[in-house]
Design a protein around this nucleic acid. Structure first.
Lengths: 200, 200
DNA sequence: CGATGAATTGAAACTTGTCAACGGCAGTGG
DNA sequence: CCACTGCCGTTGACAAGTTTCAATTCATCG
C-alpha cells in the first residue's frame, strides 16, 4: 500500500500525462515540478521539498512531471489507499485542503511574476523567496543556498540561463548580493533587494 | 449568515490584502481575479463564472482582488459559517478539495503559458480554452464570446493590449479566425489554431 | 449626431533571447 | 600526479519579439 522509495539525483519519478495512480509525500530531498511543451520548452512550476504532497490531480493523469535535483525520499500511496485514508481521517482532508489552498496562493503569486515582472524583479523575488524558505526566521541569515542549476532557475522564472546569470551579476555589481559560489548567494542589502523585487 | 448579493459591472467585491472574512460562491455573471503591483501593473489570474468558489485562502487576508466584468450575483458566507458547514457536510470538503485541485492544475497550465509561450501561442491557447468553456460540447461551435476587454485579455496573458490586438489581427489574416465584432471570435480552422497554440 | 472610450494600426525603442566563445570546476584515466 | 573531458556558468555581440508612444478608426450611448 504505502511504499517508501528513494529517487537518485536526476531521476524522474512522476511523468506528466501518465495515469495518476499514486499520491506522493516527500520525506527528504528536493524535486523540481515542471510541465513541458512538445518542442522541449519547459516551465518549472515549483520546487518540492520535505513534507510536500504531490499528485493531488483530480483528473486521471498527472498534470506535471517531478524529477529529483537532490536525492529524494518519498512515501507513495495508491489512490485507492488515499481515498480510504481520507474517509478514515477527516482531518487529513482538511490538511490537504489547506495545502492546496496555499499552493494556489503561491501559484497566483508566480503568475504575477511570470506575467508582469522584469527579469531583475523576478530574480530578486526568487532570492528573497528562497531566503524565507531556507531560514524560516527573521535573522540576518543573509545566506541563500541554491540547490538547483541556472537552467532550473531560468525555467522557473520564465527566462534564459544567460539572463539569469547576467541579472545575478548585475545585482552583485550593485552590491545587493554576493556570489561566493554559483550555488551560494549572500544577501548584502536586504532592503535594497526588496526594492528591486517590484513590491509585494 | 449566508447572504446573496449582486455586484454591478466594474464593482470590486474582493480586495487583495483585506482580511479574508468571507467565502464566496458565484451564482451568475463573470468576475476577473487579479493581483496588482504597487505601480499599477496587474496580472489577472483567472476569470470566475457561475459555480466558482472564491476566498479559499488559508491566510487571514485575500491573495487577490475580484471585480465584476458582468453583473455578478454571489452567495457570501462568513468563515465561521463555512467552518461549521464543513464540519456538518464532509462531502463539501471533498468537493472543495476537488475544486482547489482543478484550479491548481489550471494555474500550472497558465504558468507554462506565461513563462514559455509566445504571444501568438498565448492568444491561440486563450481562444481555445474559451471555446471549451463556452461550449462544453465538441460541436463545431466555432463561436467564442469574449465578455472581457482587450485590457483584461492582455493582463491575463501577460501581454499588452496592442500585442493582443495585433495577434488577433494576424490570426485573422491567416484565416484561422474571424472577428465579426471585438467581443465575438469565430474559429474558422480549429486544427490550425491548435497548431498555433504550441501543443498541449 | 456628436462624444467618449475601446480597439486597431504604425514607427521606434528596449528588454530579453540567440548564438558563440571562454573559463572554471569535477571526475576520469593514463 | 596531471592532462583530458565534459558540464556548468559567465560574458559578449547581435537579432528578434514585444513594448512604448502616438495617431486613427471603430463602437456605444446619450
Amino acid at each position: 500500500m504505502a511504499v517508501t522509495s528513494t529517487a537518485e539525483q536526476g531521476r524522474t519519478f512522476i511523468d506528466e500525462g501518465d495515469p495518476a495512480d499514486h499520491f506522493f509525500n516527500i520525506t527528504s530531498g528536493t524535486a523540481r515540478l515542471f510541465k513541458s511543451l512538445p518542442d522541449g520548452r519547459r516551465q518549472i512550476t515549483g520546487f518540492a521539498g520535505r513534507g510536500h504532497f504531490l499528485g493531488l490531480a483530480v483528473s486521471n493523469s498527472y498534470a506535471f512531471s517531478a524529477e529529483a535535483i537532490e536525492p529524494v525520499q518519498y512515501c507513495r500511496f495508491s489512490r485507492a489507499k488515499l481515498r480510504m485514508m481520507l474517509d478514515d481521517f477527516p482531518a487529513l482532508e482538511k490538511r490537504l485542503l489547506d495545502v492546496a489552498s496555499n499552493e494556489l496562493v503561491a501559484a497566483q503569486e508566480q503568475m504575477l511574476l511570470l506575467g508582469r515582472k522584469t527579469a531583475r524583479e523576478r530574480v530578486a523575488s526568487f532570492l528573497l523567496a528562497r531566503r524565507l524558505e531556507s531560514a524560516a526566521c527573521v535573522s540576518p541569515a543573509v545566506h541563500v543556498h541554491l540547490p538547483m542549476t541556472r537552467s532550473d532557475i531560468a525555467d522557473y522564472l520564465g527566462l534564459t540561463i544567460e539572463t539569469v546569470s547576467r541579472t545575478l551579476t548585475g545585482l552583485k555589481a550593485d552590491k545587493l548580493i554576493g556570489i561566493p559560489h554559483p550555488s551560494e548567494i549572500i544577501i548584502l542589502n536586504h532592503q535594497g533587494l526588496t526594492a528591486q523585487a517590484g513590491g509585494h
